[in-house]
Amino acid sequence: MQLAICSHFLKGFFMAMAKPSKTTPQPQALPSLRRQPSQARAQQTMQTLFKAAAQILDKEGEAGLTTNKVAAAAGFSIGTLYQYFPSKEVLVRAMAAKGQDMVLQALEQYLAALELRPDVAQMDPQDFLRQAMKILLQGFATGKGFSQSLIRLGWLMEQPQETASVVRQVADRLAIFFERINHPALKSPSPAQLFVLSRSVIGTLRSASLEKSPLLGSAALEDALVQVAWALLARPGQAGLALGARPIR
């Protein structure tokens, strides 16, 4: 059964070749909710349930996370919880989708700010590649806003099409960024290079999270991811530079 699930995920995860679009990444629809929150009160209810679930998960682990415990910790009846989330799985997937949206928003804000800088072509590209990696690391593995245990559970319950959509949005936004800044040390990556880069990075973070790798949060993992990006994106004559070396002008 586990092999079938993994096979199904890998098929969906590596299927689509990224085609750069000119649009900003859009928030995901929350998966399979019985009620889509539209009012401030409903949004607040969901946030309270999310917070309660995260606290239980951190204290008791996956085995201790139940809808009854979440409802009680949040101060709601189980009926109120079921108005939004028909099962624990849907609750976790909704939390994971929220976390992924936070990652996309953080990446968008960072890249958009760089695009507006008049001196971006003079900046060290390894610096902003590293910062982009930090955003992805925190969002998909080490945790920022959501804990590592929640991120891991989200990966365990993922839907391949949802993961593929997030990865494509990351690849699309990076394509727009590199085209706009036209940095002398970086080339505009091809669709194939963006496909390899985005799937390599997020696939690595997924594996590190699921395996509870001791590399999570380490400088070694961050350096390795930056090296992968640099090898794919640097113009000829630049790729051989060590991390921290100044690009050749």
Rank of each mutant, 00 (worst) to 15 (best):
M1K: 03
M1Y: 03
Q2E: 14
F9Q: 12
F9T: 05
K11F: 15
F14V: 06
L33Y: 03
Q36P: 01
Q44T: 11
Q47K: 15
Q47N: 15
L49Y: 09
A54V: 03
I56R: 13
D58G: 09
D58Y: 05
E60A: 14
E62W: 04
L65C: 07
T66S: 15
T66L: 05
T67G: 12
T67A: 06
T67S: 13
N68P: 00
G75N: 14
G79W: 02
L81I: 06
Y82S: 05
Q83P: 00
Q83N: 14
Q83W: 01
Y84L: 00
Y84R: 00
P86T: 08
S87K: 09
E89Q: 15
E89K: 15
E89H: 09
V92C: 05
R93V: 00
M95F: 04
K98F: 11
Q100L: 08
Q100S: 10
Q100H: 07
M102K: 15
M102C: 10
A106N: 14
L107H: 05
E108Q: 13
E115R: 14
L116T: 13
D119G: 03
D119I: 02
D119N: 12
A121W: 00
D124A: 12
P125K: 06
R130I: 04
A132I: 01
Q138M: 14
T142N: 12
W155L: 11
W155M: 11
M157Q: 14
E158F: 01
Q159A: 05
P160E: 03
Q161E: 09
E162L: 12
A164H: 08
Q169C: 05
A171D: 13
D172W: 02
D172C: 14
R173V: 01
R173D: 07
L174K: 02
E179P: 02
A185K: 05
K187D: 10
L197E: 11
L197S: 11
S200F: 07
S200E: 07
E211S: 08
S213R: 11
P214G: 08
L216N: 06
A220E: 15
L221Q: 11
D223T: 04
L225H: 04
W230M: 01
R235Q: 13
R235P: 00
P236D: 02
Q238F: 02
G240S: 08
G240C: 00
A242Y: 05
G244A: 06
A245W: 06
R246F: 07
P247N: 04
I248L: 11
I248N: 03
